[in-house]
Design a binder for these strands. Structure first.
Lengths: 168, 168
DNA sequence: CGAGATATTGACTAGGCTCAATTGAAGTGG
DNA sequence: CCACTTCAATTGAGCCTAGTCAATATCTCG
């Protein structure tokens, strides 16, 4: 998993997304050729570089492909926005975990667990919460038997309960 | 000015953006042809419809044009995200006003005032704040001589002060 | 094993939300 | 032109969630 972030005027770091296997990284670079975000690998990863040139070639072969992808990103970002603007800490975490879970399933990693490769600090940064809050909420979710955590392995015990939280 | 919003499972409304003269509306519809957000005009407006067909034609004439636009939207959304995740009420309002101001200048409406056509409730919804908080902060900004408000006309008195707030 | 990072927990604080009452603005119809 | 209605804005009081600070505990890795 890769953490993508930006650094603001004060040198503070803001996590923008976490990308996993199969995700495209750096699409925002299309805006003027400037890279607007940085990225760090959170574990050992293999990346496949794709030149703009090649992207354009793909776009010619499958017109609208790239646009559709970008539009989806836009919609996804919108959902995140909604979460940050209107949900409390518990709901944010629930939504976050469900999103990670959904993506791990799409990748075919099945079962009902996945790897939380980022630190709680990073999760908090991404969700607009303090790291301590993330820890407290995760503990609370565990006490409520909604999830289980073993080191960095996360198990979902009650997905409907989580959904209830996430979608209020 | 047009307010673009989505409605969640509970029927609650979430303001996504405010669009003004010259802005494109409904680009998220490119994601699968489904309209993912609704829109309401906040005043009498004239809109120019643009069929997907026509968009594609434009894209053929100026390859990459649409992608670049979408990428910019992505970056813009990212900024909003940063604001929602990491700033307090005062900073959010300051950043919001500066953004509106910048856009009004781009449109050539110059001077240092612009029209706040949306309700404080809507602003709050957009920024993840309660309407009452928006009101309080605006009053406070006025008391600090950073802005002036007359009905729905907003005047910026101290743009550097606002910038200081917005960027912390 | 030791060091540095990360996680956990507690106590305290504060910023913003909720609820409620009042004022003010804008539009409607007689 | 003025009463009447309605919706937006304003202001206050009290509460509560999440942030901050600080102290351990636990993990990870060389």
């Amino acid at each position: 998993m890769i953490k993508s972030y930006i650094t603001d005027h004060n040198g503070r770091e803001h996590v923008v997304t976490f990308r996993g296997r199969g995700d495209l990284l750096g699409l925002d670079g299309l805006a003027e050729g400037v890279q607007t975000s940085s990225a760090v690998a959170l574990e050992t990863v293999a990346v496949c570089t794709l030149s703009i040139h090649r992207l354009e070639k793909l776009e010619r072969r499958f017109p609208g492909w790239l646009c559709k992808l970008l539009a989806w990103e836009l919609v996804r970002g919108r959902t995140t926005l909604q979460i940050l603007g209107h949900k409390d800490a518990r709901s944010r975490l629930a939504a976050f975990l469900l999103d990670l879970f959904r993506r791990s399933r799409v990748r075919g990693e099945s079962v009902q667990g996945f790897n939380l490769s980022m630190s709680q600090q990073d999760i908090g940064n991404y969700l607009g919460l303090a790291g301590e809050t993330v820890c407290r909420v995760l503990s609370s979710l565990r006490r409520s038997r909604l999830i289980d955590i073993d080191h960095h392995r996360l198990l979902i015990r009650d997905i409907d309960g989580l959904r209830g939280l996430a979608f209020n």
